[in-house]
Amino acid sequence: MKEINELVRKDFLLELRQRYAINGILLYVVSTIFVVQLCIGRVIDENTWIALFWIILLFAAFNAVSKSFVQESASRRLYYYMLAPAVSVVLSKMIYNSILMLILGLLSLIVFIVFMGFPEFNLALFLPAFTLGCIGISGALTMVSAIASRSGNNAALMAILGFPVVVPLLLLLVNASRLSLKVMVPVSDIVKSISGLFLIDVVVIVLAVILFPYLWRD
């Protein structure tokens, strides 16, 4: 528990010093949304809003998470290896990436609302789905980046391996967002889509905790 805390704190300190992820990715999100606004104008229908929002957030996540294991050099990996058990390394990375992803998601949501307006979402469904989605995407991509960092050309591999892994989450997220547009959503539907997302998150995290030690040792 203590190691996890320390590792998360260290990642945040690094991020605060460099401000690489936050600034770069926010710039990316803003410019993408701006280009979209130039192309199709401010008023777009809800389905397009949902699709654009999740696609832009997905690519932002790829950029933010893909560096999480790549930036660690071999010697630093050895250092961690001696310092902390593998499980706490992967959990700390997942926690850090989830928090980063939530911050990025909220910021891009604000940018999106400014440039594109906000559809009438049912917040009781949209916000939990958004949170679970951010956690799931960052968890899955953390694991994928750990896999990709073990091979030579990891930028290309990250995209190839990551795409199939995030598609089920993305599908569920788009479905949940669409559902939250309806005026009267039955409670059973809300529970169904939230529990689907929750299930995938749990599976991803459990698999990562079980499998990461095999990736970590040399």
């Binding site: 694991m143 896999i147 073990r150 391996l161 892994v165 698999l207 499998l211 095999y214 990736l215």
Partner: peptide, 8 residues
Amino acid sequence: VSAVYNIF
């Protein structure tokens, strides 16, 4: 590594 990915 491929065994880990295969399980995913």
